[in-house]
Amino acid sequence: MTAKLLANDLTLMRGENCLFQELSFTINSGELLLLEGQNGSGKTSLMRAIVGILSLESGEVLWNNIPVYQQRQEFHGSLVWLAHRTGLKGDLTLTENLYFEGALRQRSDADLAEVFKRLGILKLRNLPLRLMSAGQQRRAALARMLLFETPLWLMDEPFTNLDHEGRELVKSLIDEHLATGGICIMAAHQSIDINSTIIRVNL
């Protein structure tokens, strides 16, 4: 797959504050955009603006050269967003949660059991999410990335709560995704060593 995300002169205001001004970048297939900046500098807000939940003061985001607002559903169908909050229901089991997610976007042909095994949560699949540790919930949220075959990944602090092995897992997932022509936008504090082109944006 080839894909391209282009941001053109983005300006975002939150109340009286200007979070960023005239921010532009282009990401192509196989590239990683790393958002850096202090706490509260607007990394999460930029992600929310890219997916279209926050409205921008000015500027536009283009997906495959077409403005996102003209193709909102198609764009949403081509992304998976690992947000700060998992977006999974604490009272439901892992399997129930992901069964529901399957109705929200296009499933890949990945086998559910294989995905759980890869993420190291196969034994927990029939456990309600609220009984899992923070790291385990984080791994559960990662299942979305593998179950849906989408070119664009947005990851907000993907390493939070993960142990060393978990962080390596995330890195290998990103590596594979970029190798198959995907795009990844990531907000992170620590630097990450992967084999692909990294574009850095400092907020």
């Binding site: 797959m1 080839t2 894909a3 495959n64 050269n65 559903q73 198609e74 169908g77 081509s78 229901k89 009272d91 439901l92 129930e96 069964y99 529901f100 399957g102 109705a103 929200l104 976007r105 296009q106 499933r107 989408t150 070119p151």
Partner: peptide, 29 residues
């Protein structure tokens, strides 16, 4: 340029799935 056009799960499938999820949640609480 290849435009990625996902084959979407039907609208009714989405509607039923979220209703089922909320009913399941209500059943558990």
């Amino acid at each position: 340029m290849i435009v990625y056009s996902p084959e979407r799960p039907g609208i009714i499938i989405g509607l039923v799935a979220i209703a089922r999820r909320d009913l399941l949640l209500a059943w558990k609480r």
